[in-house]
Computed example of a mutant assay.
Amino acid sequence: MNFEKIEEAYDLLLENVQNIQNRLGTNIYDALIEQNAAYSSGSEDELIHGNNLRLKKLNLTKEEWRRSFQFLLIKANQTEPMQYNHQFTPDSIGFLMTFLLDELVQEEAISVLEIGSGTGNLAQTILNHSQKKLDYLGIEVDDLLIDLSASTAEVMGANIGFAQGDAVRPQILKESQVIISDLPIGFYPDDAIAKRYQVASQEEYTYAHHLLMEQSLKYLKQDGYAIFLAPNDLLTSQQSPLLKKWLKEQASVLAMITLPTNLFGNQSMAKSILVLQKKQDAGIEAFVYPLHDLQSGEHLQAFVADFKKWKAEHAI
């Protein structure tokens, strides 16, 4: 990976986006979508056209593209902050999810469904680093994020599909071997839809992340895995008894990996990685592991070794 090329690509993207933003009077995210279209289809603007020719001559790899776009989104978030659920998943967590996917599934070709694919950064992280051949589909309800992720994927030449839809509502989707989600946290506003679920609250709006977990397993193959980034209070929150009842009946918890709180800004926003399967009868003891430092190579090596040992002991 060439960081000088990434820096140059970032500068060219930023200049084009700011030019488009000033000319159209739009927000920086819509301007980025316009820039992606100009890169793919051409532009009559001399500056934008010239910068895009220079971008093409850089011959960036998919990972160099991803990093360039990521830095641009970080810059954008400083002036026009995205809501918390729309911000991209940290790379270190994406790498952990990729490791889990590669270790858990034995097949070389894997179908993956991401619930709430957002900007597409997590999808691109997994696609760029997985050792498997992935058939990857992301579903996202937000118009802006779908346009952003799809146009970025086109620029990168990434083999990935995105579909717009509210994942809590029934969707026509094939079953996948792996479900992935950085679960959006909050209440789901449509009680009529929520009441169809086992985890539905009778006293208040139901947590959207609970509904998405239940819905996700409907799209999961029987021997597949659901890998969620979920809030630390998942099993202790006010509505957790409803979720735990559903889990006991419908799913097996295979792994729970707690993450450093400094990744999330503050303790209340902290999350853990949760791995589920549809209900199995094997009675596998869950892999529970506290990851305290994702910058420590020694700590991560110990985690990898312990996970592989657990996997071997349980013939997974």
Rank of each mutant, 00 (worst) to 15 (best):
H314Y: 13
A38W: 02
Q250S: 15
T61N: 05
A302F: 12
S240G: 08
N19S: 12
Q87D: 01
P184Q: 11
L113E: 11
Y289F: 14
R196Q: 12
L217Q: 14
T119N: 06
Y29V: 03
A286M: 10
L247P: 06
A37C: 03
E249G: 09
E64S: 05
Q222E: 15
I160S: 05
I185H: 05
S252L: 07
K75Q: 06
S296K: 11
Q164T: 07
F71D: 07
M97P: 04
L72M: 08
F287G: 03
L234I: 15
N16H: 02
L60V: 02
A123F: 03
A315N: 15
P241K: 04
Y197I: 06
S111V: 03
E298Q: 13
A312C: 00
D306W: 07
A167I: 08
A226P: 02
L276C: 10
Y205G: 01
F99H: 06
H129T: 12
Q124W: 08
I284M: 05
D142V: 09
I273L: 14
N2V: 04
D166S: 06
K62H: 11
I180S: 09
L243P: 11
F303L: 10
N2T: 04
Q35E: 13
I33V: 15
Q106N: 14
V155K: 05
S41R: 14
Y188L: 01
G224Q: 07
E204I: 01
D166I: 06
Q83R: 13
P170Y: 09
P241Q: 02
V275T: 10
M256D: 08
K132T: 12
Y219T: 06
E175C: 01
T152N: 05
A302M: 10
Q106W: 04
K245N: 14
R196A: 09
T236V: 03
F3C: 00
A158C: 09
V199D: 04
Q177F: 04
W310C: 02
H299R: 09
Q301A: 12
E214L: 10
D191W: 04
L72C: 01
A192W: 00
D45G: 04
D30Q: 12
T79L: 11
E204K: 08
A37Y: 13
V141E: 13
L24Q: 14
G297V: 03
K57N: 09
Q250R: 14
F228Q: 03
L259Y: 05
K221A: 04
N77E: 01
I172N: 14
F71I: 01
H49G: 01
F307W: 12
A305Y: 09
Q202P: 02
Q35Y: 00
A226I: 07
Y136Q: 07
Q215C: 02
I139L: 15
N159D: 15
L47Q: 12
K133H: 13
I33M: 02
K308Q: 15
D233Y: 08
A305R: 11
D102Q: 01
M269Y: 12
E175L: 12
E7D: 14
N266F: 08
P81W: 00
E7V: 13
N266A: 14
T258M: 09
Q238P: 00
T98A: 08
L276V: 13
L183M: 13
Y207L: 13
L220K: 11
E298M: 08
Q78D: 06
L220T: 07
E249A: 15
G42V: 08
N121C: 03
A315M: 14
